[in-house]
């Protein structure tokens, strides 16, 4: 089971002066249970790409298959199957808290599942479960207005609304943008839990190389509508030139270690995280002594 992209291309405003090819023959497979990051500069095609994963956009050429079902199928039966397949992919947009609209938190989370025909006891169960997953105590929060929460809490409500749809794949477009360091860390821990404990397959768009290195088992780097690389973060981040060409910065620790090497300090320059980086520097210093 997987989400599979086969030679997907997409052009905005075709045959106009503003024609823009946003995706150019992109192919990859996201296996069930994986944790994949998508990185790239603004305009590299990231958001266009994620909108293909649940059929919000259909490819101009190529195919998107979710568990083998073509999301753009045109026959009557195919459309029905495509709809069911789209429901397997939950989508959390950038700044999802801007989409909250109901009077109470429970009602806001109920909106999606209700539209899928879920009601009564099961609906309540789903609301409860997704709120708990996002660390929002049901009894405390259900009747409160979503507009009186902090930014980080609002975002949790919005994500709970997607989880209540019981997706198998969860796509998050820059989930931590605009949060303070503490809020970011808490949300990252929650996403981790969704992956490890609830076995959700995660796809997230991020500019934060440290987060990508820490969380993802593979990273897709987009550059001008093409996939520049899909590899383990450790491996992808070593390719400094490729990163630069894609308008990305290497992780800060890696950058520091490269600078030290250039300055003639023989440091082992493949660490990304703080502890391993410091260890590498210490070792280089004691070698020098």
């Amino acid at each position: 089971m997987s989400i599979e992209l086969k030679q997907v291309s997409y052009t905005y405003m075709p045959k106009t002066p503003y024609e823009h090819k946003a995706l150019d023959a992109v192919s990859f497979t996201l296996e069930e249970g994986s944790f994949t990051a998508i990185a790239g500069h603004t305009g590299s095609g990231k958001s266009t790409l994620v909108q293909h994963l649940n059929g919000l956009l259909h490819p101009e050429n190529g195919q998107v298959l979710v568990d083998g079902t073509d999301l753009a199928a045109s026959s009557k039966q195919g459309r029905k199957e495509a709809m069911a397949a789209r429901n397997k992919v939950g989508m959390v947009f950038q700044y999802p808290e801007q989409q909250l609209f109901e009077e109470t938190i429970a009602a806001d989370i109920a909106f999606g599942p209700k539209n899928q025909g879920i009601e009564g006891k099961e609906l309540e169960e789903r609301i409860k479960e997704s709120m708990e997953l996002m660390g929002l105590a049901y009894d405390e929060f259900k009747d409160r207005s979503p507009f009186q929460l902090s930014g980080g809490q609002k975002r949790r409500v919005a994500i709970a609304g997607v989880l209540a749809l019981h997706p198998k794949y969860l796509v998050l477009d820059e989930p931590t943008a605009g949060l303070d360091p503490l809020g970011r860390e808490a949300l990252i821990q929650t996403i981790c839990k969704l992956h490890k404990k609830w076995k959700l397959t995660i796809v997230f768009v991020s500019h934060n190389m440290e987060d990508i290195a820490r969380l993802a088992d593979s990273v897709i780097i987009m550059n001008h509508g093409k996939m520049a690389i899909k590899a383990a973060p450790q491996e992808a981040f070593m390719q400094t030139e490729l990163l630069q060409a894609a308008g990305l910065q290497e992780p800060a620790m890696l950058h520091l270690l490269h600078r030290l090497r250039e300055a003639g300090i023989p440091v082992n320059d493949n660490a990304i995280e703080l502890e391993t980086g410091i260890k590498a520097i210490r070792e280089a210093l004691s070698d020098a002594e």
Partner: peptide
């Protein structure tokens, strides 16, 4: 927070 929504280059 003028850069919160931007990529590293921006």
């Amino acid at each position: 927070e003028p850069t919160a929504m931007l990529d590293p280059q921006g």
